[in-house]
């Protein structure tokens, strides 16, 4: 790939990658680093993508997994608490609009659930879009969301909520 083509792809897709990473990591410097890492990983796919929608799919897939792994690495995680964060008077979906809450909750979940939950419940993608982005079957997405909800209910039962 020529330097000009690299620059062209970065100018075209860089804003979307950066916005995605900032949304997940909530920190300017970390989002900037993640943007570069994500771009280096997807640049060949972006170069060959038949259209911008395919390019965005790659960005979502790679950036979401990369950033969630960064969070799991505990470098950017909010201070841990012993119990599930309290969400009185709000549905789980409403509570997940709070990034800090979403990160703390997902840190207690198995890795395979995080990307599915974030894309569907935080970003608002429907199950079909989640399946396409993560290259999973829709059934797998449905099953993982069900598992997530079961785990949340178990936490709440333990906490007496």
């Amino acid at each position: 790939m020529t330097a000009d083509r690299l620059a062209q792809l970065y100018r075209q897709y860089g804003p979307a990658i950066y916005a995605r990473c900032q949304r997940l990591l909530g920190d300017g410097a970390a989002a900037e680093d993640a943007t570069q890492e994500t771009f280096m990983r997807v640049q060949r796919h972006l170069d060959k993508a038949p259209d911008a929608q395919a390019g965005l799919t790659w960005i979502y897939r790679v950036a979401t997994n990369y950033c969630l792994n960064q969070l799991r690495d505990a470098r950017l995680r909010p201070e841990p608490v012993a119990e599930l964060p309290d969400v009185p008077g709000r549905s789980l979906e409403e509570a997940l609009a709070d990034r800090d809450f979403a990160v703390r909750l997902l840190s207690r979940m198995p890795e395979k659930l995080s990307a599915v939950v974030w894309l569907h419940l935080v970003d608002g993608l429907d199950q079909g879009e989640v399946a396409r982005v993560l290259e999973l079957s829709r059934r797998t997405v449905v099953n993982r969301l069900a598992e997530f909800h079961e785990r949340v209910e178990r936490f709440q039962r333990k906490a007496g909520v």
């Binding site: 979307a16 949304r23 965005l56 894309l119 935080v122 608002g124 429907d126």
Partner: peptide, 14 residues
């Protein structure tokens, strides 16, 4: 409401 995907795709003309 528009999902995050839709907002990003709209900005990218995707």
């Amino acid at each position: 409401h528009l999902s995050q995907w839709e907002l990003d795709a709209l900005a990218l003309r995707a």
